[in-house]
């Protein structure tokens, strides 16, 4: 009986120690890494292309795919809804916060819009135009305008090396971001 009590105490100590190591060591570390990864997805310069390429789809009418794609892009943390115009094949992403409420640097905001528009055009084959609407302002871009900027068919951007080389890495250059933003949205910004 006493020896069995000793075994119980030893096992209990081992169990509690193992539980602490698992919960407060390994799992806390994993949770931290996941948080860092989720945070990195909101930045156009660190967004993981492999995480969004799985949402490549021929049709803008696939609503759940549109939702999932944009849920993994920058500005995903800003509450938003979608509207699809199937006649003009236009996707309207309607954010509920104004630019001022986002408390984001202008360059970061512009880079996010450029990145998101490019991702939507590169991964949704029949998307003709996209509008990012905020209270008091909206930004509209067409496939033709974006394609002119990159100089290649947009679907050809949808592999990791091309994406990094032609889209993501260039967003570190503030001048490039401003120029791309102007080329994409300059005409329709209101």
């Amino acid at each position: 009986m006493t020896r069995r009590n000793l075994v119980i105490i030893v096992l209990l100590i081992i169990g509690v120690a193992a539980l602490c190591v698992v919960e407060f060591g390994f799992k806390a570390n994993i949770r931290h890494q996941q948080q860092q990864y989720a945070l990195a997805q909101l930045n156009p310069k660190t967004n993981d292309f492999n995480n969004i390429v799985k949402f490549k789809n021929p049709f803008v009418g696939n609503n759940s795919n549109d939702v999932n794609l944009n849920a993994n892009l920058p500005l995903a943390n800003v509450p938003h809804t979608f509207s699809i115009d199937s006649t003009t094949r236009t996707l309207d992403v309607r954010y509920t916060k104004s630019e001022r409420d986002l408390a984001m640097a202008m360059s970061q905001f512009q880079a996010s819009l450029v990145y998101n528009a490019t991702a939507n055009f590169a991964l949704i084959d029949n998307l003709n135009a996209i509008t990012f609407s905020f209270p008091g302002a909206s930004y509209h871009a067409t496939r033709a305008e974006v394609q002119t900027w990159y100089g290649i068919e947009l679907s050809k951007l949808s592999n990791e090396s091309t994406w990094k080389q032609k889209v993501q890495n260039k967003l570190s250059d503030l001048k490039y971001v401003t120029s791309a933003y102007q080329a994409f949205f300059g005409r329709t910004n209101n």
């Binding site: 069995r4 075994v7 119980i8 096992l11 209990l12 081992i14 169990g15 193992a18 539980l19 698992v22 919960e23 390994f26 799992k27 994993i30």
Partner: peptide
């Protein structure tokens, strides 16, 4: 206690 303690310890690493 002993026969619930052993499976408890065994399943701790499976908490992932």
């Amino acid at each position: 206690v002993l026969y619930s303690l052993i499976p408890w310890v065994i399943t701790i690493p499976l908490r992932f």
